[in-house]
Structures are given as C-alpha cells and as structure tokens.
Design a protein around this nucleic acid. Structure first.
Lengths: 146, 146
DNA sequence: TTCGTAATTGAGACTGAGTATCATTTAGCC
DNA sequence: GGCTAAATGATACTCAGTCTCAATTACGAA
C-alpha cells in the first residue's frame, strides 16, 4: 500500500525540476530509500548502495540524504533508540508507527495529532507550530503471528 | 511551578536508596539538571559543572547522565534539531513543549496523547506500547512579549 | 558528436560526541 | 584512622558525520 504512493520516478523528476543533475549514485540511493519498508540510517543506506555500486563514497550518501530531505522527499525520524533514520515522506499521512518486532514503518492518519495540538494549545496558551511524534509497538501482522 | 515539583534532595535520596555513594560531582550535576529550565545536553552540563568544579571529567558527566536516566530522574528528549538533550522527569505531566524563542521547556497534560494513542490503535490495528512526542512553538510568555 | 563548464563524486583528512581503560582518589563501613 | 570497593579524571579510542580537493561526469551549446 505504501509502495504505491512512493514512486522513484517522481523523485528523479523532483531532482531535475530543482535543477540537479541525474547520476547513477542518485538513482541507486533513490531506489534504496523509496523501496525500503524500514527507516534507514545514512550508514545503512551507504552499505546498501555499495552492494550494487561498490565505489560509492560515504560523503556522497550524506549529501544525497541532505538533498532528499531538503526537497521533502524523505523525512528524518527518531528510532526507538538513537536518531537520524530516514523514511519517505508521505503527504497527509504523517504519523509514523514503527513495529518493534519486525521494524517496519507504517503511516497513520494524522487527524488525532491535529486534535491533540489544538487541545494542548487551548489548555496551555502556547502557540504550537511544530511537532514530532512517533509511535512504537507491535504491528497488526506481528500480533497475529505471535 | 515546575521547580516546586523537582527537588534535588529527592534525587540524592534516590541515589542512596539505589546503593550509590554521594559525591560532590553528583551533587553538582544534580543541581544543574534539577534546576535548569532548559533541556541540557551532556556537554552543556559538563560546561556548567566545570564552572563551579573545574576538575570535573567528561566521562563522569556522561556516567552521571546515564545513572540519572536509568533511575528515571531525567529523560532524554530530542531538541528541535539534534538529539540527546535531557530534562527532569515529571510524573503524570509528560508531554513536553519547548519554546523556540526562549528555549524553555514546559510540561503539558498527557491526556490528549493517551486519547490519540487509543484512537490510532483502534484505527490501525497496531498495538502501541510506547510513544515519543514533542511539541514546539512560542510559549505564552514569548507571545505576549512579541 | 564533440566540447566546455560546472555540478557531482570519492578518497581521505578531520571533527566532535560519546565510550573504554586504568591508575588515582574518595565515600562509607569497620 | 584504616580498608575496600565505588567513583573519578585523564586520556586514548571509536564512530557518525563533515570538509576538502582533485578527478570525474552530466548536459547544454556548438
């Protein structure tokens, strides 16, 4: 279901549209990020990239991650422990759930989060302009197979 | 309001109760964390510690942070950018808000978060066992002074 | 198709947060 | 006061991430 929403072709198109050149490293890395069911760190992406393209440099991967993030194509998230994992950005479905058994990411409707923000603003008097939420637990599949 | 809830004496008592010895470094660091209105990184805590106790070692600070975290007295949070800041744990008032203007932390009622979790569990079929939420924006004070 | 130019890349030096080691110091019990 | 194990500080080390720069490559222009 997620894979239908994320199209590597669109990511390449977005790069071209922003005036960047299309290279083989970029294609490789876009495939890796767009097709992963799991949040990936830059180091993990580097390992995966070198499997199909051994000469890939570390700095290139970090540069690409930065580029994809600045274009809004991937989004930095915090794993259960540690930080700096990346998942594809999915518009309108922004609340991230990560299964602690299988590690896969799922996106949930963010309406409840918008409700929470509204309630909390009202109760506290603060003006909330940004939020970081992540949910962890056992996904529906893993619960069945347990 | 927050300061009334956090008592350095209690933290020392918690250390003793867990069989740790009380040392001057520990007292210094507990004062620093318990009295800070701002989330602190270990490095920031180290800088502050050396102001009153110059010989304080870096490793000691990291060990102390680990100890305080394992005792549940402080809690690791993610700043607006970057990770690994620490704030005192406040029971029952667990939803963290950080003001992007003045940097101060505030704790909000977590009931809306519990509601969100229940709704999302119901909608997705996942079993949610843990969550990380942080809210950012302009606090009530900073809005008035703007 | 070739060429020129500037973007992109890879190798490797570098940084800075965090960890590990180990000899020295110190708290707390006798 | 003395003993012993915990705690500490100095320092070496690791590892993610950044910076630099020469070599390579994409791509528009000729």
């Amino acid at each position: 279901m997620l894979s239908k929403m994320i199209n590597p072709e669109d990511w390449l198109a977005a790069l071209v549209e922003s005036g960047f050149r299309v290279t083989t490293v970029q294609e490789t890395l876009i495939q890796i990020f767009a097709n992963s069911e799991y949040p990936l760190s830059a180091e993990q992406a580097w390992d995966l990239a070198r499997q199909s393209r051994p000469q890939t440099g570390r700095a290139t991967v970090y540069r690409m991650v930065e580029k994809l993030e600045s274009l809004g194509l991937i989004r930095r998230v915090h794993g259960y422990q540690g930080c700096s994992l990346f998942v594809p950005t999915v518009p309108e479905l922004m609340m991230l759930f990560i299964c602690l058994d299988c590690g896969r990411a799922d996106y949930l409707d963010r309406q409840p989060l918008d409700d929470l923000i509204q309630q909390s603003e009202h109760a506290s008097g603060h003006h909330i302009t940004d939020s970081r939420l992540q949910l962890f637990g056992a996904c529906a599949d893993c619960q069945q197979n347990a």
